[in-house]
């Protein structure tokens, strides 16, 4: 399969043929041979519906999945380290030091019995070996960086004393306290109100530029993905089905599923008209169909769609779609342009 190659030669994240299976009868195929690269300082948006495997992909990068029930195959490298081989202290150094993660629900992710200051300081002491007072100073600095008003007072606040948007800022401060090279964001704005969501998105975008970190941003909301990402990967039933720059994917989607998602987001729909909706629902991950897993819902499905491996339309520069129809149309267009 063509990897999702970034222009930079030394990627920050290198994932090859990543597959994740959860134990069960039959086993759940949560992620199916996903490959991509992420350059330092690049923002990759992973777009998908619930159960498409986007969060599982993200958690694999921090090895947060339950060891005994999960079988991970493939290669995962972050900053040159083989993440799947990490054990003990080295794994702990990786989590929060090299890569860190922000979650959808900060009230679950933060510890309710410690103040925000204590939680940030603890991380800094563990990873950077600072003294307690230096760590508190870093915590204060972090709260100022994420633009929490009257940061000094907030340092002594418990999570329940803050509003939703403020808690999300505090979690971002915690995640960035040790200056990770990679930030993993798992739907960090989904639980927020619209006017707060845009504040957090702009904050993340600014911080990403200031600190120059790589970001993988998982979301189900196309609008959110467009606001923050450089490149976009559309995920369906555990596989990447289409990738490319944000502009290319939004303006010229090739995979029928990406097109359906755009239509469902009312891109260019006249009010009151019927939407061009994709019928049906995603397949269960413990019984994926052969070949293209989108074929049962696809209006253009043909016999070739149940073959594997599927042909890939390649638009160059990391732009591709895994679809029989897209590859045929692409080949036709190429033939026309050369003749």
């Amino acid at each position: 399969m063509t990897p999702f190659r970034s222009p930079n030669d030394t990627p920050l994240v290198r994932v090859r043929d990543l597959s994740v299976r959860f134990a069960g009868t039959p086993p759940v195929h949560a992620v199916n041979s996903v490959s991509f690269d992420l350059a330092p300082g690049e923002v990759l948006g992973i777009l998908g519906e619930s159960g498409s495997g986007k969060s599982v992909t993200l958690k694999t990068l921090l090895r947060l999945l339950p060891e005994r029930k999960t079988r991970i195959t493939g290669q995962v490298e972050v900053d040159g380290q083989d993440v799947l081989a990490l054990q003990g202290r080295a794994l702990a150094d990786h989590r929060g030091g090299v890569a860190s993660m922000i979650f959808q629900d900060p009230s679950l992710a933060l510890d309710p019995v410690y103040t925000i200051g204590q939680q940030i300081a603890e991380t800094v002491i563990r990873h950077d070996g600072l003294s307690k007072s230096d760590a508190m100073a870093r915590a204060l600095e972090m709260l100022e960086i994420v633009r929490i008003p009257s940061a000094k007072r907030r340092l002594a606040n418990y999570p329940h004393e803050m509003s939703g948007g403020m808690r999300q800022r505090a979690m971002i401060a915690l995640a960035l306290a040790c200056r990770p090279k990679l930030l993993l964001a798992d739907e960090p704005t989904t639980a927020l109100d619209a006017t707060v969501q845009i504040q957090i998105l702009l904050l993340l975008r600014d911080l990403q530029k200031e600190l120059g970190m790589g970001v993988i941003f998982v979301t189900h909301d196309i609008g959110v993905a467009v606001e923050v990402s450089d490149r976009l990967a559309v995920m369906y039933a555990g596989s990447f089905v289409e990738t490319g720059s944000v502009k290319d994917v939004i303006r010229d989607a090739r995979h029928p599923y990406s097109k359906g998602l755009l239509a469902a987001n009312l891109v260019g729909a006249a009010p009151g008209t019927r939407l061009d909706a994709v019928p049906g629902a995603p397949p269960p991950l413990n019984a994926l169909p052969e070949g293209c897993s989108f074929a049962p819902r696809c209006a253009h499905a043909e016999t070739a769609c149940s073959m594997s491996p599927l042909p890939i339309w390649n638009g160059g520069n990391g732009r591709w779609a895994r679809c029989v129809q897209a590859s045929c149309l692409g080949a036709l267009a190429d033939a026309e342009s050369t003749s």
């Binding site: 006017t195 845009i198 196309i222 467009v226 606001e227």
Partner: peptide, 11 residues
Amino acid sequence: AMPSLDPDRRT
């Protein structure tokens, strides 16, 4: 505050 769906005209 609605996210723009246009990559050239981000909020």
